[in-house]
């Protein structure tokens, strides 16, 4: 308890930064992932191929490598330089956000796509036969059914994203994962410091997991 209370000035901002990183990259990856999913189900082969290529490349690359690229290699291309962000810390933060968003978007895309694919073709054909427009079909037939199949795995993806924010500890972004590295400078016990961080994640993740399971159970019966 002492380790936590004596170093609240580290833990408070650390946890806050983690939540902030998570929220921004969750919104970003949901938007980008949905756009990618639209590409992957598009009726145009060229757009489908683009989506598939992105997902295949990103899904098979370690997130650590994506972080590595944006933190160390990307500035060398001089498209944006750390100087244009004012400070190195601001650049690293944006690099971390870019890595998390681009990586998670590939998984979001797959979840959305497989959700749309669970809707039987007959459903869409029937709604077209009834004369529904594309928008009506999407809003009242396909999406309500796809949503049931999308939300539970999407929550798993978001839980993974929350845990993945800690990788930023290795890339100069201060958040929960890097608290312990700062603790050792103060001569505190790292193990106890890390146990508090672990507890923080257990407290955040467990309710999400429980909610996800109950949704999964409740919605799987309805189909």
């Amino acid at each position: 308890m002492d380790v936590l209370l004596d170093n609240l000035d580290l833990y408070g901002p650390g946890f806050l930064n983690t939540v902030e990183l998570f929220l921004i990259s969750a919104v970003g990856s949901l938007v980008l992932g949905t756009l990618l999913a639209m590409l992957r189900v598009a009726p145009v082969p060229m757009l489908r191929a683009t989506g598939t290529a992105y997902v295949t490349l990103i899904r098979n690359t370690p997130l650590t490598l994506v972080f590595f690229f944006f933190t160390f290699a990307f500035p060398l291309l001089e498209i944006v330089t750390p100087a244009s962000f004012g400070s190195a810390a601001a650049y690293y933060r944006n690099a971390a956000l870019a890595a998390l968003i681009l990586y998670t978007a590939a998984f979001v895309c797959e979840v959305v796509r497989s959700g749309i694919n669970t809707v039987p073709v007959g459903q869409a054909e029937a709604s077209r036969a009834l004369g529904l427009t594309f928008g009506q079909m999407l809003a009242s037939v396909v999406l309500p059914q796809a949503g049931r199949a999308v939300v539970p795995p999407m929550m798993s993806t978001m839980i993974a994203l929350l845990k993945n924010t800690t990788i930023a500890a290795g890339f100069s972004v201060f958040q929960a994962g890097s608290i312990s590295l700062n603790l050792s400078d103060r001569g505190e016990s790292q193990l106890i410091g890390l146990l508090w961080i672990a507890l923080f994640f257990v407290v955040l993740v467990t309710p999400m997991t429980l909610l996800q399971r109950s949704l999964e159970k409740r919605w799987s019966i309805a189909r």
Binding site: K163, S184, V202
Partner: peptide, 14 residues
Amino acid sequence: AIPLVVMIFMFHYG
């Protein structure tokens, strides 16, 4: 529930 990074740090540094 525990991030892999935190676990790795726990075993290595802790």
